[in-house]
């Protein structure tokens, strides 16, 4: 009888223990730092689409700061430091920080790839930065895609300038950004990158078209000034009749910037 009672008691306690284990698993999976970071990051993704614009750097930092209340993983510590450096323009320090990471979590893989491509661009390994950023152009995160397009364009321009690729390869590289603008026609920055790419080739008429599109879709003030000055440079080297034709089209943009009319 005692055995039976103790057997029943044992079973009863085992049942409790089982429930306790289940509850612990549930509890720890809810509040563990990684899960908390995941949920915060998902929230961030819902609001922002990722990438390294000024706004998204600030946003990612807020997300990680939130997560910092818990114990941060070594990756996130480095990632946070890297973002802080990027924010103040210390790219070199940012990439040195991120270079120390061997295995980034899946959650941050694309962001990490972008940092790597910036790293290779700064170190002069333009082929690698071009390849890495080209992979990121397929991402669904909009800001990340724009940042990748920026790195890709710069790598391509530098490869061409240093004569490490010929014009044929350069033009075929440009087509990748052209495809992006076909899908996302109204992005002023994508048109700006395309404009920069054409400015470095002999196809300067195409550069003008992209410059106009970029202005049309409301590019930021500093870029606008750059475009207007660049247009002056292009028109100067153009056939007179063609230049006059473009000047007519561009008159309304000139009107907003007196410096160009000098």
């Amino acid at each position: 009888m005692i055995k039976r009672i103790s057997g029943r008691l044992y079973l009863k306690n085992y049942h409790k223990l089982f429930l306790l284990i289940l509850f612990s698993i549930f509890f720890f999976s809810c509040v563990s730092p990684q899960t908390r970071i995941n949920s915060l990051f998902n929230k961030a993704k819902a609001l922002k689409t990722g990438g390294y614009t000024k706004e998204s750097i600030a946003y990612f930092k807020t997300v990680i700061e939130e997560a910092d209340k818990e114990e941060l993983s070594p990756f996130l510590k480095k990632y946070y430091k890297a973002l802080s450096y990027l924010e103040i323009g210390e790219d070199e320090k940012a990439i040195n920080e991120i270079e120390k990471v061997s295995y980034p979590p899946v959650l941050f893989r694309e962001e990490f790839l972008l940092l790597k491509s910036i790293y290779f661009l700064k170190k002069g390994y333009y082929e690698i930065s071009k390849e890495l950023s080209a992979n990121l152009l397929k991402t669904k995160k909009y800001n990340l895609k724009i940042s990748a397009a920026e790195i890709y364009s710069q790598s391509l321009i530098l490869l061409f300038r240093e004569k490490r690729i010929n014009e044929k390869k350069y033009i075929s590289g440009i087509k990748i950004i052209e495809k992006l603008t076909n899908k996302d026609f109204s992005s002023p920055l994508l048109h700006y990158y395309l404009f920069s790419l054409y400015l470095n080739s002999k196809r300067r008429e195409k550069a003008l078209t992209e410059a106009i599109l970029s202005l049309e879709f409301g590019i930021g003030e500093i870029y606008k000034r750059d475009i207007l000055y660049s247009i002056k440079f292009i028109l100067k080297s153009m056939d007179k009749k063609l230049a006059e034709k473009y000047e007519k089209i561009l008159r309304r943009y000139y009107a907003t910037d007196n410096r160009v009319e000098r």
């Binding site: 802080s84 924010e87 103040i88 323009g89 790219d91 920026e150 364009s153 710069q154 321009i157 530098l158 300038r161 920069s196 400015l199 470095n200 500093i222 870029y223 750059d226 660049s230 440079f233 100067k236 080297s237």
Partner: peptide
């Protein structure tokens, strides 16, 4: 941390003849 502006995308993408001009 103090922000110092970066304009590397704009300045580094210009061709040689643009700089001379």
């Amino acid at each position: 941390k103090i922000i110092i502006p970066r304009l590397s995308t704009i300045v580094s993408s210009k061709p040689d003849d643009f700089i001379l001009y």
